[in-house]
């Protein structure tokens, strides 16, 4: 089966004035379908940058990225947006909800972009909020939700369209340990139940403990890549 993510010799160098900052220095990585992988490493090692280029939010300076076997290097901004819309869900570290929309509308948003009919869309959005334990808070705007609740809305939003892949950048960083634990359990459940692939950049030992595959980066390179049996689950 075609892996969902393939990175071949991916480099990304930021230029700050005259200084070149190499964030990725040749990353080769393959993530199979249904994986639940964590990406760890010291601050500045390139985790966020790697997720960005995989999701087409940023372009590599060199190398190639394939999503479901298709190279994304030649896609323009609109095509990349289209790819994300249909295949990839994002969960960002800090609150990333649309502030003027309610929890339900935030989850509905992508479904509406996808053109899902109203009845189905509402049902799916409610179900997703229910799954993340937010039933009853559908009509609250982000400003009236706690950080943990907002993060769960973001997870519901990423999951409701049933993407093939979820890229999460430190999803638990702003959560207390109870909330973080719930979120991890939720993502694992979804991975097990619907086969959604997860790639999660995190420092959080609890998240790493639950992963089936653990990758570590140092200075823009992958320095560890180990698979374990999902015994901990």
């Amino acid at each position: 089966m075609t892996p969902i993510i393939q990175c071949r010799g991916v480099e990304r160098t930021y230029t700050q004035g005259a200084v070149a900052v190499p964030a990725l220095r040749g990353v080769d990585l393959t993530i199979g379908r249904g994986d639940f992988a964590t990406l760890a490493g010291p601050s500045g090692s390139g985790k966020t940058t790697l997720l960005s280029v995989i999701g087409g939010l940023d372009r590599p300076s060199a190398g190639e990225i394939l999503i479901e076997g298709r190279s994304i290097g030649g896609l323009d901004a609109a095509q990349l947006a289209e790819l994300r819309l249909h295949k990839i869900g994002f969960v960002f570290q800090s609150y990333s909800l649309i502030p003027v929309l309610t929890a339900l509308e935030n989850v509905e948003f992508i479904l509406r972009l996808l053109g899902v009919p109203r009845a189905e869309r509402l049902a799916r959005a409610r179900e997703a909020l229910h799954q993340v334990g937010l039933a009853g808070l559908e009509d609250r705007r982000p400003a009236r939700l706690s950080g943990g609740q907002q993060q769960r809305v973001a997870v519901a939003r990423a999951l409701a369209p049933r993407p093939a892949l979820v890229l999460a950048d430190e999803p638990t960083a702003n959560l207390d340990s109870a909330n973080a634990g719930e979120l991890i359990a939720l993502m694992q459940d979804l991975n097990a139940a619907s086969g959604i692939t997860f790639l999660i950049a995190t420092h959080d030992a609890r998240v790493i403990a639950h992963s089936r595959r653990h990758i570590e980066m140092t200075d823009g390179r992958i320095t560890l890549d180990e698979s374990s049996s999902p015994a901990a689950a």
């Binding site: 939010l57 901004a77 609109a78 249909h86 960002f92």
Partner: peptide, 15 residues
């Protein structure tokens, strides 16, 4: 940041 987010969510630049 918000417009970046909208693009990340799959909204096309023209939208």
């Amino acid at each position: 940041r918000e417009f970046g987010l909208l693009q990340a969510l799959g909204m096309r630049p023209r939208q």
